[in-house]
Amino acid sequence: MTVEEGSPVTEVGTSAGTNRQVLLVVHTGRQDIVELARSCAARLARAGIGVRVLEEEAGALCIEGAHVVPADAEAADGAEIVMVFGGDGTFLRAAELARFSDAALMGVNLGRVGFLAETEPEAVEETLTAIERCEYRVEERLAIDVDVLDCEGTVVAGTWALNEASVEKAERSRVLDVVVAIDGRPLTSFGCDGVLFSTPTGSTAYAFSAGGPVVWPDVEALLLVPSNAHALFSRPLVTSPNSVLTVAIPADGNRAQVSADGRRALEVPDGGRVDVRRAARPVRIARVHESTFGDRLVAKFGLPVRGFRDSRTHDPGHELTRSCNVLTRGFVTVEPREEGCGGGTGEHA
């Protein structure tokens, strides 16, 4: 799950030299992560950048001089960067906090795969240098809005997702009957374990595990991926980003629920439906290191790229050009614009 070449680039909107703020979101369950976050906070402070920490994490972090803020919708207001220390789960939690601000997310991968994170722990110093010098780009990720409607067509609940929203059966022992519609027109129906609505970002997450396609992050599209469907026509669908994707649940069928990014759950009323559309507000992610989405796929999945015979005698991924392999922490320097951080044109990081 990454944003690379071709994605929209915007500016952070905070100029070097002003009162710059960075919010830290940390997986405090591991001491090594806590210590890394502390050292990064100290360096940011020495550079004159204010550091914020979440109220629920402040006790574990014990960062002197940090501004403690509640973990709510205003946590990232006025912040330039939300720096995330952890895996993709921590990144998704941070995305909730940055959702309605202009802050850009920048992740340090301390999990297992970490598709969303920008950098590995060994490259943190280069990442901090980029923040201090405003040498990074801000790219926008398509997000989705989710509406839950009752049998009368009234919206009774709603949420959003960066990766995916899944409509799942509430009872494991029963099949979930669904009707799939695109832009208000019925397309097909089948029994299944569930249906996933995914963004290109989420194409390498839950949707990938369910057999969906890998979609490059600069492709604007919505994905619908059936999960264990009892039907011949149950292939993943890739639609226009302007489409409205619908899954309706028959009133006499199994109960259903919605899970958004695995973090927020909603109940679907009997005979209700779920509508998914492109969110008006994208998620902003800061990029520093030189890599392409293809590089990340090779590195994260250990893909052989020369041939199965050659890969028998070499480690997977050994064929990657060293100058652009994400595992070598290649660092790209972008001349900052005078009016603010995160700008610039030319090759995408």
Rank of each mutant, 00 (worst) to 15 (best):
3 V>L: 15
5 E>N: 13
14 T>Q: 10
19 N>R: 15
21 Q>P: 03
23 L>N: 01
25 V>F: 05
37 A>N: 07
39 S>Y: 00
42 A>Q: 14
45 A>L: 11
54 L>A: 06
57 E>Y: 04
57 E>N: 13
59 G>L: 10
64 E>I: 12
68 V>I: 14
68 V>F: 11
73 A>K: 15
79 A>W: 04
81 I>H: 02
88 D>K: 07
99 R>F: 10
107 G>Y: 05
107 G>I: 05
107 G>K: 02
109 N>L: 10
112 R>W: 06
112 R>C: 02
113 V>W: 03
114 G>N: 08
121 P>T: 04
128 L>Y: 06
128 L>I: 14
130 A>G: 13
133 R>L: 13
134 C>F: 12
134 C>T: 05
135 E>W: 00
135 E>T: 13
142 L>V: 08
143 A>K: 09
148 V>F: 06
149 L>H: 05
150 D>T: 09
158 G>D: 09
163 N>V: 01
164 E>R: 00
165 A>H: 01
165 A>Q: 00
167 V>K: 03
168 E>Y: 07
170 A>G: 11
173 S>M: 08
173 S>F: 09
173 S>Y: 08
174 R>E: 09
176 L>V: 05
176 L>Q: 04
177 D>I: 00
177 D>W: 06
178 V>F: 06
179 V>F: 13
181 A>M: 07
187 L>F: 15
191 G>H: 09
192 C>Y: 02
193 D>I: 04
195 V>W: 00
196 L>Q: 01
196 L>H: 02
201 T>P: 05
204 T>E: 04
215 V>F: 01
218 D>I: 02
222 L>Y: 04
232 L>V: 14
234 S>D: 09
241 P>C: 08
244 V>H: 02
251 A>I: 12
252 D>S: 14
254 N>Y: 01
254 N>F: 02
256 A>R: 02
256 A>H: 03
256 A>I: 09
257 Q>S: 10
260 A>Q: 03
262 G>K: 09
274 V>L: 08
275 D>A: 12
278 R>W: 00
279 A>H: 11
287 R>N: 13
288 V>M: 06
289 H>Q: 09
293 F>W: 08
297 L>N: 02
298 V>G: 04
299 A>N: 12
299 A>F: 07
300 K>R: 13
302 G>L: 10
302 G>V: 12
302 G>D: 14
306 R>I: 13
310 D>K: 14
310 D>T: 15
322 R>E: 15
328 T>M: 13
328 T>R: 15
329 R>Q: 12
330 G>M: 04
331 F>D: 04
332 V>T: 12
332 V>L: 10
335 E>P: 03
343 G>Y: 02
346 G>A: 09
347 E>I: 13
